[in-house]
């Protein structure tokens, strides 16, 4: 069976990263922005696993890094969602355009 080359995996992960970045900059819904950030973090995970499998299969540094990223992303999402819920209580909206009391 033919193996998928490393460059194609890196292409997918880079593509995912910039889709996430595009989503973060264009979407105005806070939950969607949070999802975009998760997309960016997951693309980094693909990077780590691919590098580990293809270039350095002897030790598992990259794989363990991925596990830690997943854990921390969960913690980050928990805090972010708590903050968004609190924002919704005071603003009655989760649109970033409505949370613009402070400028310049």
């Amino acid at each position: 069976m033919q193996e998928i080359p490393l460059t194609q995996l890196l292409f997918v992960s880079t593509f995912l990263f910039f889709i996430g970045m595009y989503g973060l900059f264009t979407r105005r819904n806070l939950i969607t922005m949070l999802m975009s950030i998760e997309l960016m973090l997951n693309s980094v995970n693909i990077n780590f696993v691919a590098f580990n499998k293809y270039l350095f299969p002897n030790n598992l540094d990259g794989l363990f890094f991925t596990l830690f990223i997943i854990t921390i992303a969960a913690a980050e999402a928990a805090v972010a969602i708590a903050i968004i819920i609190n924002l919704y209580r005071s603003h009655n909206s989760i649109d970033v355009e409505d949370a613009t009391e402070m400028k310049y």
């Binding site: 973060l24 950030i37 903050i83 924002l87 209580r89 005071s90 603003h91 402070m102």
Partner: peptide
């Protein structure tokens, strides 16, 4: 303002 600040910080 406090929740707005926290939202900006975490994102």
């Amino acid at each position: 303002k406090s929740s707005e600040a926290a939202m900006k910080l975490i994102l």
